[in-house]
Amino acid sequence: METRKAIISVNNLVKNYDDFKAVQGLTFDVYEHEIFGLLGPNGAGKTTTLEIIETLREKTSGEITVDGLSIDKQAQEIKQIIGVQLQAAGYYPNLNLIELIELFAGLYGADIKPMAMLEKVNLQDKAKAKYKALSGGQKQRFSIATTLINQPKIIFLDEPTTGLDPQARRNLWDLIKEIRNNGTTVVITTHYMDEAEQLCDRVAFVERGRIIALDTPDNLIDNLVNSGFERKKEVKKANLEDVFINLTGQEWRE
């Protein structure tokens, strides 16, 4: 994180739905090649913010640039350099994974080998399966594969690990880190703080449409500790999830 070049700049973003103020003046930068986490409770405005950056939703006011492109004037160009995974999105019915990848390749005008895309997310064995027949973890990995088709500079993942078992979750973390290491910036939302701690280079806490904290997980924790915070229960060197993984194995099941 030495080169702190902002690839996404959000400046004073506001979004109102009639009376409801979903986003109230968000300002933050996402740096190149980092995993940036948007954290916060349900209804805090995380998904709205993501969808505005993804050009899927109109903003009320504020400025956003993505890789130097203005969201107002260059939405079409932005779409070509980002990959988007939506919360709970489905895929075209009755098609198998290879056919879905082909469809997205056509939609992006990307010249790719569908099988190679599936191999990236370790789904080559499911090439002929329908999306509906996949397990939760496989669905998420497939969704991530579709975000990589246009070789995007940034991918957006909206709660990718919700509902997954610990093995599938860790497996997905590895995949996301690998994508980041290959040079893609990742913006992710999650409810799980352990996930954010392990995965994100920097996190922003969003509450009622405002950012209430933004830093590396380490700094945020240190700040809290320095302020005199202590856990009620003494922290052990392992937690229950470590026990679970230790007992049931790292190996990820389908």
């Binding site: 899927l56 489905g90 992006y108 005008g109 579709t146």
Partner: peptide, 12 residues
């Protein structure tokens, strides 16, 4: 099923 929404995230 938000398939169309996902399409809108592509340049189509």
């Amino acid at each position: 099923t938000l398939v169309i929404k996902r399409f809108f995230a592509t340049p189509v």
